[in-house]
Design a protein around this nucleic acid. Structure first.
Lengths: 148, 148
DNA sequence: TATTGTTATACTCTATAACTATA
DNA sequence: TATAGTTATAGAGTATAACAATA
């Protein structure tokens, strides 16, 4: 028997547990991201919505909410803020007036582009301590773990 | 110029962003962990407190709270629940009666051991799609990213 | 005066239920 | 009847401020 599998105390340091490491890695990147986006007047959650809106045909609120995995009532408040800031517009879909077509404004597109740059810097700072190869591996592993 | 660095649209899929992947990996492991611990009457947050308590000398509430990175008022509510379940005890520290000495009970130690087994299964399920080597690499990367 | 634990309170985030309008 | 968006409300989770006991 090897010492690894018979270790009587595999979690002697509470901070070695994967759940702890993953949680704190997420907290750290989120903090870096929010700090980087703050000068643009948005946070990571807003940036997530912008990413969805920037890469799809003009969508209904419900479609965006479902893509983000948030409730449609939460979507209302999120878009209220972005609309007030001039980042998105809402208008009834002529083909189905129950739906709102949500689009990035010109200013919203500029904000989104600036946000991509700012986010990229935050991500780079987060990954600074590991090699490009380790970064690729890390990203690939996360993709596998998250999928389905 | 390589196509990678000149990709005009590096985040065409909103779900390829590291912040998204990390967040959802964390959500997935947290869900698996909470489901695995639920029969024991605790959740991942409680398990975190138990890990700290099991691997330290009997601690004051404040020490445990600071190790977990939570507010001391939050610690009160967390321990209220664990104490009511017979998992921990609180008593004034004879050396400094402002402090509470917090300890796992006998039952608490059994709960903790069962929780370790349950958590281990959740972690294994989470990691099932990647190889042991990739798992080791993943863990090491997270350690590096989280540290300091 | 400062510190630990506690309580009361408030704030953030998000979801559920009910309502309006459209289909 | 069912669906999209909205509003009102409630719940979980956590933090701030004030207080009691102790140092």
């Amino acid at each position: 028997m090897g010492s690894v599998s018979t270790d009587p105390n595999p979690t002697a340091d509470p901070r070695e547990v994967l759940a702890y490491l993953l949680k704190h890695a997420n907290l750290k990147l989120t903090a870096l991201m929010d700090a980087a986006l703050e000068p643009l007047g948005i946070d990571g959650k807003d940036f997530g919505a912008l990413r969805v809106l920037a890469h799809r045909e003009p969508s209904s609120q419900l479609q965006v909410a479902q893509t983000l995995g948030i409730d449609r009532t939460t979507m209302v408040a999120l878009l209220d803020v972005l609309e007030r800031k001039g980042i998105v517009t809402r208008r009834p879909d002529p083909a189905d007036r129950r739906r709102n077509v949500v689009e990035l404004t010109e200013q919203g597109m500029r904000t989104y582009e600036a946000a991509q740059v700012a986010y990229g810097k935050a991500e780079s700072a987060f990954l600074a301590a590991i090699s490009p190869a380790a970064t690729d591996q890390f990203r690939q592993t996360l993709r596998t773990l998250v999928e389905k």
